[in-house]
Write a protein that binds this DNA or RNA. Structure first.
Length: 647
RNA sequence: GCUCGCGUAGCUCAGGGGUAGAGCGCAUCCUUGGUAAGGAUGAGGUCGCGGGUUCAAAUCCCGCCGCGAGCUCCA
C-alpha cells in the first residue's frame, strides 16, 4: 500500500488510484479529458460535492456531468444561478439584503431585502446583468471560515448573520465567492459562472423572511436554468401548454362552473355540465364506500356553538370558521367547517357494543371554511367545500385494517382515473396547535406509519403537518403547472373520542374508548374535479363526460333521422345532444372537438340508408369509423360501465 | 391576511385626458354544405365600484372590491 495514494471506487465497481489530496476534478481528468470537460460536480459517498473537493481515501465517487436529465446536475447549476442572480441584484441595488437562494424543483429563487419591490422592468434589467455575471466566467470558490471571520464578512448582512447564528458549534461554516459576490452557503456549486448559459427570470413576489408571516416581507425572484437552450425552450413551451389546461380557463370554455362576484369569492356555481361531472363522481364514491361497509348519514349545516367548543374547533380552528349567529333567544350557532362533530353525535346517540364496531359513517357533505382571501384559487381552494367525508369508530386493534380499507379506496380511485399521486405522513403540529398528550400522538403516528409500511407504500414525512386532533396520511397530486394539492386524507384521532367521552361495551362487560379515523377519498369534490379537469385537459373519459355523444346531421334533410338517433341513445341512458344548427358540417365538427365531446356521430344519406353512424371518436387513431348504430351503442355502454379511460 | 401586478362587450384582448375598438361568440337573413371556422347584416359596454384633480377622466391620483402570481395557511 502506497500511503501517498488513495483508492477511489467508481460507479461501475472499478477502482482508481490517485495521489493523496486529489480532487473530484482530478479524478475526472484521470478518467478522461471528455469527462473532465463535462464534469460539474461529484457525488462522494452519496453526498453531492464540488469538483474542487479533495477526495477521502476509499471513497465511492460518481462524477456529475452536465445534463438536463440529471437532478444532481440541475441542482448545482440552479444553485449557482441563484448566486449569479444575487450577484446581479447586488450590482444594481448595492446594499440589497440577501436571504436564502436555493434551487427548487423547476428552477431556483433568491430572496432580497430591498427598498422597493422589483418591477417587471427590473427583472429584465437584472436578467441582462445576470448574463454579464455568467459571461465573466468567474470561478465559484469555496472557503471554510471561522465563526468570527464569517461574522466579519457578513457584518452588513443581518439576514445572513441570523442564519450564521443557527449553524451549530463545530459544524463547518463555508462561504462561496464568485467575482465580487460572497455568500454564506453550504454548496455545492458549478465550477464557474460560465456554466449558467440558458436561464430565464420568471417572476417576482413577496415572501416572508423565514416563511414567518410575523417577520418582514422580502422580495423573491424566481428563475430557471438549464444546460441547453433546447431544454430551456422546452420548459417554457411546456409551461405555456400547461396554462391551457388550467381548470379555470377550461371551466369557462367548457361551461362547467363559474365563480362570480354576485355570489362571493371562493363560492362555486356548478353549471349543468360541471354538475354532471360531480354527480357521476359522487355516485361512484358513494357506491364504492357502501361496498366497503360504510353507512350514509346526513348532519345539519348549522350546529350549536357548544358542539364546536366541545370538539375543540373553536379554540383551534376558529380563524377558519364563519362568525357565530344567534337565534331570537340568543342561542349561538355556527356553520360547520367539518363533519366530525356531527358524526360523533350520531355514534353517541346509541349505546355501542364491541359487536357493532367498526362503525363506518359517511356523508358527502358541504362544509364552509372562511379561507383567507389570498389563498382562494379556482376550484382548488374554495370556501364551500363538498367533502366525501367519512368517520370510522373502531377498537385500537381494528385501526390497521380500517386504514387499509381507506388506502384501498384511494388506490381504486387513483388507478381508475390514472392520477399520479404520492403519500405524505403528517405528524403532530406545534404544541399550542394541538390537543392531547404526547403518548397519544406517539401511538397514533406509529399506527399510521405501520399501516403504510405494512402496505409497502412509499411516503414523505411532513413533520408538524398534522391536524390539531391527530396525525394523518395525505395524498398529494399536482396541478397543470406542477403545484401540489392535497386530496385524499386519512386521519387518526384519539382525542375527539376522549372529548366526547365516546364508549363501547367490551367483551369484558366494561366500557372502552373507541378510536376514530377521519377520512376523505376524493378530499373534496371541488378540488378533485379541478384536478381532474387539468389531468384530462377537459377531455373527460366517456363515463365522466358531461356530453358523451353529439349527433350531427349533414343537412336539414337529415335532421329528423338524426333526432331519432339522439332519442335512441338517450333512451339507452347516454348523455347526447343533437347539433342541427345551420352551420356547415366542418364548423359543427370543430365545435364538437373544441368542446371535447368523446363521440361525434355524423349522419347523412349513406348512414340513414344503412342504419349506421359515422363515428368520430375523440383522440382515435382512425379519424372516422362507420359502424352500425347498435354496435356503437354497445361499445360506448361498455366503456361507460367499466369507467374506461378509452374512447 | 401580506407583497407586487391586473380589472375595457358573453370570451380573448387593443386603445389611453376631448364622439368606445377588433376577433370570436350571439341574433337575423342568404347558403344545405360529407369531416377542425361559408357569406352578409345587426345587437351588445355608465371602460369593476366610490371619491378626488381637471373646462373635460375609461385614461391621472386615493380608497374599496375582485382576479392573477408568490408567501403564509389548508381539502
Amino acid at each position: 500500500m502506497n500511503e501517498s495514494r488513495i483508492s477511489i471506487t467508481l460507479p461501475d465497481g472499478s477502482s482508481k488510484r490517485l495521489p493523496r489530496g486529489s480532487t473530484a476534478a482530478d479524478l475526472a481528468a484521470a478518467i478522461g479529458p471528455g469527462l473532465a470537460r463535462a464534469a460539474v460536480a461529484a457525488r462522494v459517498n452519496g453526498a453531492l460535492t464540488d469538483l474542487s473537493a479533495a477526495l477521502p481515501d476509499g471513497a465511492e465517487v460518481a462524477i456529475v456531468t452536465r445534463s438536463d436529465e440529471d437532478p444532481d446536475a440541475l441542482y448545482v447549476l440552479r444553485h449557482s444561478a441563484a448566486h449569479a442572480l444575487a450577484t446581479a441584484v447586488r450590482e444594481r441595488v448595492p446594499g440589497a439584503g440577501i436571504g436564502f437562494g436555493p434551487p427548487i424543483d423547476d428552477g431556483f429563487y433568491y430572496d432580497f431585502e430591498v427598498p422597493a419591490p422589483f418591477t417587471p422592468e427590473d427583472l429584465e434589467e437584472i436578467e441582462r446583468t445576470m448574463a454579464e455575471v455568467a459571461g465573466a466566467d468567474d470561478p465559484f470558490e469555496r472557503r471554510e471560515v471561522t465563526r468570527d471571520e464569517a461574522t466579519e464578512l457578513f457584518a452588513d448582512d443581518p439576514l445572513k448573520l441570523e442564519r450564521l447564528g443557527e449553524i451549530p458549534e463545530g459544524e463547518a461554516i463555508s462561504v462561496y465567492r464568485n467575482g465580487p459576490f460572497v455568500d454564506l452557503c453550504r454548496g455545492p456549486h458549478a465550477p464557474r459562472t460560465g456554466e449558467i448559459r440558458h436561464f430565464r427570470l420568471l417572476s417576482a413576489a413577496g415572501a416572508y423572511w423565514r416563511g414567518d408571516e410575523r417577520r418582514q416581507m422580502l422580495q423573491r425572484i424566481y428563475g430557471t436554468a438549464f444546460y441547453s437552450r433546447e431544454a430551456l425552450d422546452a420548459y417554457i413551451a411546456r409551461m405555456e401548454e400547461a396554462r391551457k389546461r388550467d381548470h379555470r380557463k377550461l371551466g369557462r370554455e367548457l361551461d362547467l362552473f363559474s365563480i362570480q362576484d354576485e355570489i362571493g369569492p371562493g363560492l362555486v356555481c356548478w353549471h349543468p355540465r360541471g354538475a354532471r361531472v360531480q354527480l357521476e363522481l359522487r355516485r361512484w364514491i358513494e357506491d364504492l364506500q357502501e361496498a366497503h361497509g360504510y353507512q350514509f348519514v346526513y348532519t345539519p349545516h348549522v350546529s350549536s356553538e357548544a358542539l364546536f367548543r366541545r370538539s375543540g374547533h373553536l379554540p383551534n380552528y376558529a380563524e377558519n370558521m364563519y362568525p357565530r349567529m344567534e337565534d331570537e333567544d340568543g342561542e349561538a350557532f355556527r356553520v360547520k367547517p367539518m363533519n366530525c362533530p356531527g358524526h360523533i353525535t350520531i355514534y353517541a346517540a346509541n349505546p355501542r357494543s364491541y359487536r357493532d364496531l367498526p362503525v363506518r359513517l359517511a356523508e358527502v357533505a358541504n362544509v364552509y371554511r372562511n379561507e383567507r382571501s389570498g389563498t382562494l384559487h379556482g376550484l382548488l381552494r374554495v370556501r364551500m367545500l363538498t367533502m366525501d367525508d367519512g368517520h370510522v369508530f373502531c377498537t385500537p386493534e381494528q385501526i390497521e385494517d380500517e386504514i387499509f380499507i381507506c388506502l384501498e379506496l384511494v388506490d381504486t380511485v387513483m388507478t381508475t382515473l390514472g392520477l399520479d399521486y404520492r403519500f405524505d405522513l403528517s405528524t403532530r403540529p406545534d404544541g399550542d396547535k394541538r390537543i392531547g398528550g404526547d403518548e397519544v400522538w406517539d401511538v397514533a403516528e406509529g399506527a399510521l406509519r405501520d399501516a403504510l409500511e405494512r402496505g409497502g407504500l412509499e411516503y414523505k414525512l411532513d413533520e408538524g403537518g398534522g391536524a390539531f386532533y391527530g396525525p394523518k396520511i395525505d395524498i398529494k397530486y399536482k396541478d397543470a403547472i406542477g403545484r401540489e394539492w392535497q386530496g385524499a386524507t386519512i386521519q387518526l384521532d384519539f382525542n375527539l373520542p376522549e372529548r366526547f367521552e365516546l364508549e363501547y361495551m367490551g367483551t369484558d362487560n366494561k366500557p372502552h374508548r373507541p378510536v376514530m379515523i377521519h377520512r376523505a377519498i376524493f378530499g373534496t369534490l371541488e378540488r378533485f374535479t379541478g384536478v381532474l379537469i387539468e389531468h384530462f385537459a377537459g377531455a373527460f373519459p366517456p363515463w365522466l363526460a358531461p356530453i358523451q355523444v353529439r349527433v350531427l346531421p349533414i343537412t336539414d334533410a337529415h335532421a329528423e333521422a338524426a333526432g331519432d338517433i339522439r332519442d335512441r341513445l338517450a333512451a339507452e341512458g347516454l348523455r347526447v345532444e343533437l347539433d342541427a344548427r345551420s352551420d356547415t358540417l366542418g364548423y359543427r365538427i370543430r365545435d364538437g372537438e373544441l368542446q371535447k365531446v368523446p363521440y361525434l356521430l355524423v349522419v347523412g344519406d349513406r348512414e340513414i340508408e344503412a342504419g349506421t353512424v359515422a363515428v368520430r371518436a375523440r383522440g382515435a387513431k382512425r379519424k372516422q369509423e362507420v359502424v352500425p348504430l347498435d354496435e356503437f351503442i354497445s361499445r360506448i355502454r361498455h366503456r361507460v360501465e367499466t369507467r374506461s379511460l378509452e374512447t
